[in-house]
Design a protein around this nucleic acid. Structure first.
Lengths: 193, 193
DNA sequence: ATTTTTTGACTGAACGACCGGTCAAAAATA
DNA sequence: TATTTTTGACCGGTCGTTCAGTCAAAAAAT
């Protein structure tokens, strides 16, 4: 009946969709969301401007897709293992943070810039919370096992520290005291009570 | 020569200039730099579009003026007093941080969003460094007096913590554990060594 | 094996909306 | 009247978005 099986078409579409998203992530992380024009993203993708709208119904839609995809990948790397001691879990969290920072700089730059733009942020706020929530629960469990009286607040506190570190690691990588920070957090949560 | 003394004109101009800057800060903090159009800022200022260019030679020029003005005000509030103990200085730093956060939210939202946008950031990078540098020196002195072996790195570390806290305080003010964080930082730098 | 038909991925010119910025003319001031 | 402030229509250009039409590939028909 049809010239190509729907399976074939689906594969073509999925691959190209990812191609466009990768190119868009690159361009947006370099130039920012507003300055990264559809024309430029299309060029980077090696695709016509018109085709973009075959895959994403708007520029906004494209941004949301990139963000959700990126965050899922980012936060999939955070794993709590309850068979390990809470101290070991904290160490893992720190290492995972820097792993993510080293491997997903582009995603995170876009993440932070979008975060600080209320207009765009509201578009993805709920989706992000869905993704972050389980991680925060893991943080809280670890803090409870470490004996903190208010493990929820302590989990937030660690998150804030890691946010500040992440932001600056992306902004000033060359002068960032990475090793010092790693040891300092370990000292706070492990060496000392 | 002129119908008003040049002194009068100067005052009028200064006031209106500030009026425009205040309106621009408000609009930019709400919508972001690129989405905040000159027309919109003019409307918010109660001023015509054309007049904007009587006070600022370009939109870029306006942004730089706002940023430099805002940051000067922000960082003027950070004061190190060497007659006090380093512990007292750390407590002051924390209090000053939340003071700034409570009184200058708009400025800080713009600050963070600009920070994460390379294109805009390069416009103000140097000016910002000039303003931030003396603060960091103050941080470093305090850390040296507290006995840290690497006071420069420790100053950075505190800055990262305060950055992460500031960012989240602006983004999620309603669920932010302010008191807990204040006490936690004090605990890190004062109760414990 | 050859031709015809069908599909949807793909193109790029064109469109309206809006942008930052200009400027001649009007309003306001003394 | 002389001077400055203020206005908003206007300009060239870029943006996101649309859409009529093209084309390669596969199925169906011969």
């Amino acid at each position: 009946m049809s010239p190509r099986t729907s399976e074939q078409f689906k594969n073509i579409r999925l691959k190209k969709r990812q191609l466009i998203m990768d190119a868009a992530l690159k361009v947006i992380s370099e130039k920012g969301y507003h300055t990264a024009s559809i024309a430029l993203i299309a060029k980077e993708s090696g695709v016509s401007k018109g085709l973009m709208y075959n895959y994403f119904k708007s520029k906004e839609d494209l941004l949301i897709a990139i963000m959700v995809d990126g965050f899922s990948k980012v936060f999939d790397q955070y794993v709590i293992d309850n068979r390990l001691s809470p101290e070991e879990n904290v160490m893992m969290l720190i290492e995972q943070t820097f792993d993510v920072l080293d491997t997903m700089q582009e995603t995170l730059m876009v993440y932070f810039s979008v975060l600080m733009n209320n207009e765009v942020f509201t578009l993805v706020k709920d989706k992000l919370n869905e993704i972050v929530e389980p991680i925060m629960e893991g943080f809280t469990q670890v803090m409870a096992r470490l004996g903190y009286e208010n493990p929820i607040a302590e989990a937030y506190f660690l998150r804030f520290i890691l946010d500040g570190i992440s932001m600056n690691y992306l902004l000033i990588p060359e002068q960032f005291p990475k090793e010092y920070c790693v040891n300092r957090i370990k000292q706070i949560y492990i060496t000392q009570k």
